[in-house]
Amino acid sequence: MALRVQFTHPLRSFDASAELTVERGETLALVGPSGAGKTTVLRIVAGLLRPQWGSVRLDEVVLLDTDRGIDVPPERRRVGYLFQEYALFPHLDVAGNVRFGACDGSRVDELLERFRIGDLARARVHELSGGERQRVALARALARDPALLLLDEPLSALDTHTRAGVRAELRDLLSALKLPTLLVTHDFEDAATLAARVGVISQGRILQLGSPAELVSIPTDPFVASLAGAMVLAGQAIGTENGLTQVVLDSGLTAWSADQASGPVNLAVYPWDVSLGLIRQDDSRMNHLSAPVTSLAPLGNRVRVHVGPIVAEITAASAERLDLRPGAIVTASFKATAARLFPR
């Protein structure tokens, strides 16, 4: 089973368009900010929105072809759709929700068991926690024996400490189901954990499509870089010296990059490529900035440190060793090869 989608559809302020293939057993994630047109893609595949032009195919089965006037209604598309806030039916109990779309009733008990919601079968939707709601919604979507799965922000309705656990569970489930799965999220980390391929979507257009590692290491667009976690600084490329480009950032700093560019540029650096020191060292790093620490934010075993316009991500142990605290003068350094340039 492979899903093939292509469409163009006007949204309020831009046209959304995409061309995607999702193979059997593959999860493709679309990442982008809210309003980028992510849900539009899912609604078109599910048949809830008819695009101005487009086609949706599941192997040889044509679900939509606007040129030939084919539009299979959503109830006959065999699509498992997990809605953003799960859209559980408040007038039905958990078992009633799962049974709603079941083709054969015997699967219901099996699914309740599989998703550990058997004890909640008689419970009303409003009595459930976020994680339980998500499992009910997944069980309900699978009760119809779908041929493909659509997940709309499957983790965003969960609080932070249930999220990591549910994410791992969902990843195992997806690999066990072997269905073509299309997932949309605003969180790059969720996408990178759940999907082998990630498409970055902005203003209704897919900017880059690749493995999470590719998007992080060779982003083709500053937006992709910032979504993958880079800080993006605007500046002007003023010339080259020894093959390196000199950039005057809008904050007044000068930085060197191994990328070639001229004129207005965006400079992207990943926080984990920035190191901090108490004294300025003479080593292979070309870019240095000495400034007071403005803030420190712990992030598990790491700490995000703001030094002027620069963000550095260092281990908590290093932060302790350097005795970092707001106001302390430190030098932030990164290599010219870690600074990517994108013409503006």
Partner: peptide, 13 residues
């Protein structure tokens, strides 16, 4: 409005 949409994807006409 997502509830009728959900019902359609679950096979309800």
């Amino acid at each position: 409005t997502t509830l009728p949409a959900a019902a359609r994807t679950l096979g309800a006409g």
